[in-house]
């Protein structure tokens, strides 16, 4: 398995506060990598660095190197919009646009210049099928997406991210706002998606990390404490702090 994202000596500051300290990590493709750690440990910040969503926050300073498919993502020639097309994102709170289901999915492809009804129809159906929600909402494509349930909205958001044909999917606690049944569906979906995509998921829920991820990275106070096979991390952690966290001694 080759690494699709490699991170070297990554540091990040919000103003004068350092949020990430010398992160080194390689993320393999067609696998699920889980980022765990207590709130404020930098895991979400790290995730958002991978598709440069942190660029939007004023006062952010970044040093170090992040390579996606061998390309330094902070290099001056890199178009951040193309980077985000390749590295899609699903947010903590489902955030469908206040438009129809169809327009939500078609938004990305349209933005990237795809026209023609047949083509778009095809993309919409394929994305919704990939996100395992086609059967539920195929009759409601013209209805406003805000009318769907929370779990459906989140799967719609996943479908929307898939519609631009990304290579990597970043998921920022995608199930934290959902009920257990919807959470189960999203987890199932994530496991199915790794056939085609690479997934990096931030989660608060350690069972979830165990259930779906292949690798787990444990963050604490802006540092990457430990990174390795999920099984290894959760059975024989090397670092004492990892052990304390996964056994529930703090968090």
């Amino acid at each position: 398995m080759s690494d699709i994202i490699t991170v070297k000596d990554l540091c990040l500051w919000y103003g004068s506060a350092q949020a990430l300290k010398d992160i080194n990590i390689n993320i393999p493709e067609h696998a699920i990598t889980a980022l765990i750690g207590p709130s404020g440990c930098g895991k979400s910040t790290f995730l958002k660095t991978l598709n440069r969503m942190n660029d939007l926050i004023p006062g952010v300073k970044i040093t170090g190197e992040v390579r996606y498919a061998g390309q330094d993502i902070f290099a001056p020639g890199v178009d951040v919009n193309m980077l985000r097309k390749d590295i899609g994102m699903v947010f903590q709170k489902p955030n469908p646009f206040p438009m129809s289901v169809y327009d939500n999915i078609a938004y990305g492809p349209r933005t990237h210049g795809i026209k023609g009804k047949a083509k778009l129809d095809d993309i919409v159906e394929r994305s919704l099928r990939d996100a395992a929600i086609w059967d539920e909402i195929k009759d409601r494509l013209k209805k406003n997406a805000l009318g769907l349930s929370g779990g459906q909205q989140q799967r719609l958001c996943i479908a929307r991210a898939l519609a631009v044909e990304p290579q990597v999917l970043l998921m920022d606690e995608p199930t934290s706002a959902l009920d257990p049944i919807s959470t189960g569906k999203i987890e199932e979906l994530a496991s199915a998606l790794k056939e085609k995509y690479t997934i990096v998921i931030v989660t608060h829920n350690m069972q979830q990390a165990v259930r779906i991820s292949d690798q787990t990275a444990f963050f604490l106070l802006g540092e990457l404490v430990e990174y390795g096979d999920t099984e290894t991390i959760f059975s024989v952690p090397v670092d004492k702090r990892t052990e304390d966290y996964i056994t529930g001694r703090f968090g």
């Binding site: 996606y68 498919a69 390309q71 020639g77 890199v78 178009d79 919009n81 193309m82 980077l83 097309k85 390749d86 933005t111 990237h112 210049g113």
Partner: peptide, 10 residues
């Protein structure tokens, strides 16, 4: 990764 956004978008 494609080099950049299309001329039309620009």
């Amino acid at each position: 990764m494609q080099p950049g956004i299309s001329k039309k978008r620009r």
